[in-house]
Design a protein around this nucleic acid. Sequence first.
RNA 1: AGCGAGGUAGGGUAGUCUGGAGUGCCCGUUGGGCUCAUAACCCAAAGAUCGGUGGUUCAAAUCCACUCCUCGCUACCA
Length: 489
Amino acid sequence: MRELAKFYITTPIYYVNDKPHIGHAYTTIAADVIARWHRLKGEEVFFLTGTDEHGEKAEQAAKKEGKTPKEFVDGIVDQYIRIWKELNISYDYFIRTSDPSHEKIVKQLVEKIYKNGDIYKGYYEGWYCVPDETFWTDLQLKDGKCPECGRDVKKIKEESYFFKLSKYQDKLLEFYKKNPGFLSPKFRSKEILNRVEDGLKDVSITRTTIKWAVPFPMDEKHTLYVWIDALINYISALGWPDGKRFKEFWPADIHLIGKEINWFHSVIWPALLFSAGIEPPKKVFAHGWWTIDGKKISKSLGNAIDPVALAKKYSLDAFRYALLREMPLGDDGDFSEKTLAVRLNNELAAELGNLLNRAVTIAEKYDGAIEGSPELESSLNVDKIDEAMERINTFDALSEIFLFIKAANKYVNDKEPWKLKGKELGGVLYNLLESLRIISILISPFTPGTSEKINAQLGVKAGALEDCKFGKHAYKVKKGEYLFKKIEN
RNA sequence: AGCGAGGUAGGGUAGUCUGGAGUGCCCGUUGGGCUCAUAACCCAAAGAUCGGUGGUUCAAAUCCACUCCUCGCUACCA
């Protein structure tokens, strides 16, 4: 038996002091689309998401609500799981850093790094702004004061264990050089490269003040800094070191992350893995941020968007589509309901929905044989779409898919099938129905629910990527509801 | 401040590496065509001193220098 290609993609694990907003939804939907695309290609996919549950902020948030940290995070985790279900996220496993199995593996890995001599005891020194409860480095201070509020800062000296990140500077640089695709997208790789070339400081990896965390195995007074704990999720979820999944799926094909956490994933994470003798992931892809109507998302502006509400208002698939259609993954983009509505009305309803509707209407009235020569085949370029998806460019992929949809609409206009009869009509219908069947496959990672509806109206089964070519298929056409309803605004 | 990215029609982009008529795409605007279909679909047109100045060249959005503007990153909150 031929062994299936393996594909492992992860989202960040989301921190639980807050409810999921559009940023979380974007990352997760994008990962979902990529995962579904690779399933379409017949690969064996493992798609991981989860929650990062330790640390001071979760501890405080729990206190505020009079709950234990565990009770508190359980509540938030339930929300995440429910929302991912509503957004049709096809993850294979949901990891929680409070899982005992995760904790055990984290300790095991830290011990291994310690034994390799890469962890030592030292003192963390920094500036602390008491009212803001925030640490700052020398560089960040503004005229010796807190850069946020301008008030005086206090020098803090705290016992801490450090990871010898500096030791891995050369190894990291060599690794980046040998694996040019690792730092993605390209325009972001220089930010990391330059900083690593400037020199690396060792990282403080333990705290003495935080209880809600994984205990540091070598010293009971310390707990592990949450980031270290969090990063390890990517292998603990696979059951490192001996788990079957670890052997099958590691190294990860893509860690999809937001640009704000690029440093941890592109520098600290591979260094930790080097130290533990584990292969680093193949690619870290940092996507951009959304602005909402041209403004940054922030709590003070109160413009955080609830993804579920949007999905309800405009339909889930329109929302998923709009997120991935707006800009190439990696760039920053602006999100507005107005654009979403325009895309829904013009692209999904008018181009795709209407194409199906007009084809199905004609086909239902026709009772001859649906067969002919594939005249629309030349407008379809599946390789180009796949190539865009391999570059993680959903924007280009959707553009290419919609070029084919446009070509099909034009074909209808040119052929004027409502004037045709018999064999001629059968030939046009063959091209239309085959095109729709293929379109349904191609868009299924983006809009899975819509593909199901198309398949139902055509009377065909869901296909794989290799079925995206003109061939012979039997149809049982039955007109159904509109794929997308236009929305007035 | 240091490092990085970018400034192309009303908006968004491709083209820049490997110079060759401002060439393309999406939205928007205007006019027309068609009528199977969700007042949809198709065609066409208008609209840009390619941030600015100077240079190299027969020829510059593209190469060089300078300049203006915008944005991002700068490690221990996640």
